[in-house]
């Protein structure tokens, strides 16, 4: 394509009148190597507008090294993410284990105390082996307790009245 034709197409392009084929022709021209010197400014502007379609002018080696660097960084980021995830998991597991161990100790201790208390209660010898005697003593003790309580309450009632 000659320079005049390109200038004509550019004029249409800036007015927004180009077809998709014409835009493709412009893109191919400006992304190519043999752009006329008088259109160098136009090239920069056009490429800036068409960044998505025209890859930047980089050589193959630079591209490969950039690609490698990027891959290396991505690998490093992945590694850091994995390590931090593992650390977080380890910390949460430790925390859970700590809580579980504490609960186990508390439950074991209370079970032991409860069991011990029950055993000592059972181990205590009853004063009476005969339920009739035990009943008589219980009745006597509870009656004494009740009478004393009622006596005190009566005194309070009398004072109130």
């Amino acid at each position: 394509m000659d320079v005049n034709e390109i200038k004509l197409l550019l004029g249409k392009f800036y007015k927004g009148e180009t077809t998709s084929d014409e835009e493709l022709n412009l893109r191919n021209y400006f992304c190519g190597d043999d752009v006329d010197a008088c259109l160098s400014e136009e090239k920069e502007f056009f490429i800036a507008c068409q960044k998505a379609f025209c890859p930047p002018d980089i050589d193959k080696d630079t591209f490969i090294s950039l690609n490698k660097n990027l891959s290396k960084h991505i690998d490093q980021w992945n590694m850091i993410e994995k390590v931090s995830q593992r650390k977080a998991r380890t910390i949460s597991l430790r925390w859970i284990a700590g809580v579980a161990a504490s609960l186990l100790i508390i439950f074991s201790f209370s079970f032991y105390i409860n069991n011990y208390h029950q055993k000592t209660e059972q181990a205590k010898q009853n004063t009476y082996s005969n339920p009739q005697d035990a009943y008589a003593e219980t009745q006597r003790a509870l009656m004494k307790f009740s009478l004393s309580l009622n006596n005190g309450l009566d005194k309070v009632n009398k004072i109130n009245n």
Partner: peptide, 13 residues
């Protein structure tokens, strides 16, 4: 004199 009456004996009442 001390008297101790357990739950077992009280439960029989």
């Amino acid at each position: 004199s001390t008297v101790y009456i357990s739950k077992a004996l009280l439960g029989m009442m």
